[in-house]
Each structure stands twice: as structure tokens, then as C-alpha cells.
Nucleic acid binder design. Structure first.
Lengths: 146, 146
DNA sequence: CTCCATCGTTGACAACCTCCACGATACCGA
DNA sequence: TCGGTATCGTGGAGGTTGTCAACGATGGAG
């Protein structure tokens, strides 16, 4: 990979971060395309599936680091395909809880298999200890950057 | 940061990668805004500055992981501001070498100072050894993902 | 009750990514 | 020398993402 060497940006962590991130996202998107999903929608679906009581759109925006207006569209698409449904919250009538349907949960299972398999190529070569450390470092970077 | 805990995506390296990357890019963009630059243009400028003989647009696309058509626009913008110039290559008349002007080099100095200072918040808390390891891991991920 | 914050939603706009097609040039094999 | 094939830069189309401002509806504090 001679293109890698000798360039100053190769030392820039920010650059390496975005380049690696882009590569992984591309790979994941390709794997999810067969299910008609992109990473963004897939992330929302996963979060909805794992929230037993449903999850607020505001929470989705916070966790995903997205603008709330984007979450509206993502949930619209998922709801339009019957993968997710919006249920009014009894506690706070401003919020609408996003819940996964049975169809959504089934699709999530399939999609997750393909996604993890595809990402196995770039990330599989990391040892468990390395993964843990990487998780820790990335989380610290995110919290520090706000 | 209770929003961090308890969500399944918090364990997904791909997700953490893109979220951390997004945060760093946002921070860098904010720091570069004063110079009228975005990270993309800044990256091109840096590469042009550090290539004594100039750099091919194809090389830029390869190193940055961009489509060649995007590089055209980025170089157009930089050239329009006099930060960079296109010089026909004598060896291969298909290619046009991108070279930084004196103005471009001066701006790069200033911009680099601000950019590194801004990124110091999220990345400064990493020890040198951690940085080296992170660089290595990110590079391996990128090469494996193609 | 009033004032202010929050949630979801809509709209607009810029930036970005992906793909396809073209002319010009280079390279390689017959 | 010629002809096919590949590469470089460029342009354009279409979809996706990022960012910001506004709005109605609701909640909460004083």
C-alpha cells in the first residue's frame, strides 16, 4: 500500500478516523442494501428493537448524534414499511414512542447477521483486547468532542 | 453520560467509529471556518503543500478515499482562491499536477495551528502510546475494508 | 395563569456520495 | 505502425446527509 506512506495526513488522527469510518460505513451499507436498509435506518431499528418500552425520538437523536429533524424522516421510512410504529406516550403527550413491530424484529435479525458478517473483514482482525480498547478510546473522543 | 449506557449500539465498533469521526470532523470544520476552509479542502491543501513535485488528482482521490469528480471541485475552489495551481505534467499529459502557492502555504500554516488546537480537546487526552496504537488500528481497518 | 423549555415536525439549503459518460492521452500487443 | 484497452480529468444527474430556523402542541415552574 505505497499510497499510504509518505503523506502527512497519514499521521493525522482525525483524517484516519474519518477515512476508516467511511470505509466501514460503506461496507455496512452494501451489506444492508439487500434488506432495503441503510446504516442510519438500521441503527434506528436496532434501538427501537432493544427498547422494551419504546424509545423517544429525542433519545434517538441524542444517541445517534443526529438532528431531530432527521430522525423524523428515518422513522417515517421505517414506519412506512411496517417495521416500526409510533405510539403516543401516556406520560408525556409531546413525545411519541417508537416501537419495533414483529416484522421489524425479524428483519433486524437478518440484517444484523449480514452486517456483522460484512464488517468481519475489516474489524475481525482485531483481537478482543484491541476491540475493547478501541471502544473505550472512541467513546472518550466522542464525549470530549461533544 | 447516561445516554451512553444500556444501548446495544454502544458496543458496535462501526457505530462508535462513525460517531467519533463525525464529532472530530465537526470540531475541525468549526476551527477551519475562520479560514474559509472545510476539512476536505484543507486536506487537499495539506497534501499539495507537502508534495514538492506536486500531486496528481488521481493520487489525491486515492489518498483521501474520494471520487475523482469530487477532487475536481475541491481543486477548483482552492485554485479559485489562489491557494493552489494546476500545472500540466511533462511526463504524462493526461495528468495535471496540483501545487500549492505561497499564499496557500501560508494559509495552511495558520489553519493547521487552529485545527490542531481545536482537536486537542477530544484527542489530547490520549497518551502518545494510545495515539500510535489508534493510528495503527485505523490504518489496518481502512486497508482491510478497501 | 403566565412564561419559558421541550418534543416532534416541516422546510430550506449546502455539503457530500455514487454512478455514468465523455474527450484526451497513454500503453501494450499484433 | 496500428488498434484495442486502460487511465486521467472533467461534467452532470440523483440520492443522501448535515445544519439551521421556524412552528404548533405540550409540559413545568413560579
Amino acid at each position: 500500500m505505497e499510497v499510504l506512506m509518505g503523506h502527512p495526513l497519514t499521521d493525522d488522527l482525525g483524517f484516519l478516523l474519518s477515512r476508516a469510518s467511511g470505509a466501514v460505513v460503506r461496507t455496512t451499507n452494501a451489506a444492508l442494501a439487500g434488506h432495503g436498509l441503510r446504516v442510519r435506518q438500521y441503527s434506528v431499528l436496532v434501538l427501537a428493537c432493544d427498547a422494551a418500552e419504546g424509545i423517544t425520538q429525542r433519545e434517538l437523536a441524542d444517541v445517534l448524534g443526529l438532528d431531530p429533524s432527521q430522525v423524523v424522516l428515518l422513522v417515517d421510512e421505517l414506519a412506512g414499511r411496517g417495521l416500526v410504529e409510533r405510539r403516543p406516550s401516556e406520560a408525556d403527550r409531546r413525545t411519541r414512542l417508537v416501537l419495533a413491530t414483529d416484522t421489524g424484529r425479524a428483519l433486524r435479525e437478518d440484517a444484523e447477521r449480514d452486517a456483522t458478517a460484512a464488517v468481519e473483514a475489516p474489524l475481525g482482525l482485531l483481537a478482543d483486547a484491541e476491540r475493547d480498547r478501541l471502544r473505550d478510546v472512541l467513546t472518550r473522543i466522542w464525549t470530549a468532542a461533544g
